[in-house]
Amino acid sequence: MKVTGNYRLHKNYCLLKLTSDENLPEMFPGQFVEVRVENSPTTFLRRPISVNYVDKSKNELWLLIQLVGDGTRKMSEFRLGEIVNIMLPLGNGFTMPSKEQKNKKLLLIGGGVGTAPMLYLGACLKEAGFEPTFLLGARSKDDVLQLNEFQEFGTVYITTEDGSLGEKGYVTDHTILKEVCFDQIYTCGPKPMMMAVARYARAKAISCEVSLENMMACGLGACLCCVEKNKEGHNVCVCTEGPVFNIENLSWQS
């Protein structure tokens, strides 16, 4: 795919827009792609990146990249017009509610770069006639990304650890969780955050799906590196069985 946009949203984040000459296959929110970074010995493996947004009319794919190491740093340096080798789409997406459930109160919780798949999920939910609510968590106001885009698709609540925007604290501290009884939660973010969200959802008996970001190599279920324990205690591949799991299917108890 060709790089048609590369925006530095913050010192640690960039947004890549990639366009295909051919029609993109259908991509579901929660699915991911594997990006090859060429000519970089320190970036040997592909980088799994979740789908941030898809503009079907333009065959355009958005990837939100957090700069954490050499690979993501090199991706932030992709030049306009450069051709990038991408495998897509991979994994299973979030479960969309059925059309009869229009009144369902849906909460999408994203933390850090885990907000990335929530944008595309929110866009698809809105398109299907739902009114999603977003709860975004960040360290401080500069780390809150794509706020305008999120507001296009639903109501947005924010928590920051330093209180510089929205309520101070973690996503699970936000007052909206006490005020509104949601029917469904979707979440992606750091594992301790997702586990805290899962505890909240369990306590309130709310159905909850989490999108995991375990380290992976092949992305196809061949190498068995990215495993997570399912409720029976067996190791399953996050890349092919997930990355989205209903918390009831995981062994997370703590």
Binding site: T43, F44, N214, M215, A217, C223, L224, C225, C226, V227
Partner: peptide
Amino acid sequence: EGNDYPRMAETP
């Protein structure tokens, strides 16, 4: 069942 996660580390 194999070993616990993490099971891989990238190297140069």
